[in-house]
């Protein structure tokens, strides 16, 4: 082994923390690289490809997870805009966040695959805590989702959804989550 290699190993053992060599440590290091330039909390994980176009402020809360899959998740934050993601949020693959001014979401939000959220100048999007947006739903500019709101698969939301309500359909109508969980089907 050459002297240069030995010096490199010496330097690594001194300077790089031991956790970097574990599988979890490598995953975390990869996650921080994928979110380079963002304000990232502890234990954030990015499992798949992430298309980050950051010209504004991006905050990712602790223990949030971006899941990998057949399509990359896209975070497009325009100049001067801000994207604030709460703690323990969960993003399935193919989620698209297109931020022109402000998108804020609370803690423990869940997003299914191919969800799209977009705002517009003067029409920010605000999501409360414990919001669940199911597969393929679209959240349009100016919408506010209250705490615990659920957006069903394939819905297109143009109006505010109060806390604890379910938005369903295109355009989305509001109904009680209790009615939905008691059974029934829809087209």
């Amino acid at each position: 082994m050459s002297m240069a290699m030995m010096e490199l190993f010496d330097w690594l053992s001194r300077e790089v923390p031991a956790f970097m060599f574990t599988r979890r440590g490598l995953a975390r290091a990869r996650s921080y690289l994928a979110l380079a330039g963002c304000e990232v909390g502890e234990k954030v994980l990015v499992h798949g490809p992430l298309d980050l176009e950051r010209h504004g402020r991006v905050v990712v809360g602790r223990e949030s997870v971006f899941v990998g899959g057949p399509f990359s998740t896209a975070l497009h934050v325009r100049r001067g805009a801000s994207l604030i993601i709460g703690a323990k949020c969960y993003f399935n693959y193919g989620v698209q966040l297109d931020v022109h001014q402000s998108v804020r979401m609370g803690d423990r939000c869940m997003f299914g695959s191919y969800v799209r959220i977009q705002d517009a100048p003067g029409r920010p999007v605000i999501l409360g805590a414990d919001v669940w947006v199911a597969h393929g739903a679209v959240i349009n500019p100016g919408v506010t989702l209250g705490d615990g709101a659920v957006v069903s698969a394939g819905s297109v939301v143009n109006t505010d959804v109060p806390a604890g309500m379910l938005a369903i359909g295109n355009p989305a109508r509001l109904m009680s989550q209790r009615l939905c969980s008691s059974g029934g089907s829809h087209v």
């Binding site: 191919y114 669940w132 597969h135 698969a153 989550q177 209790r178 969980s181």
Partner: peptide, 17 residues
């Protein structure tokens, strides 16, 4: 394109998500 067929919701609407 982009259609989906699933036999499980993966999360309940109410209760423990």
């Amino acid at each position: 394109a982009f259609s989906k067929v699933m036999d499980n919701h993966f999360h309940p609407v109410t209760g423990k998500r």
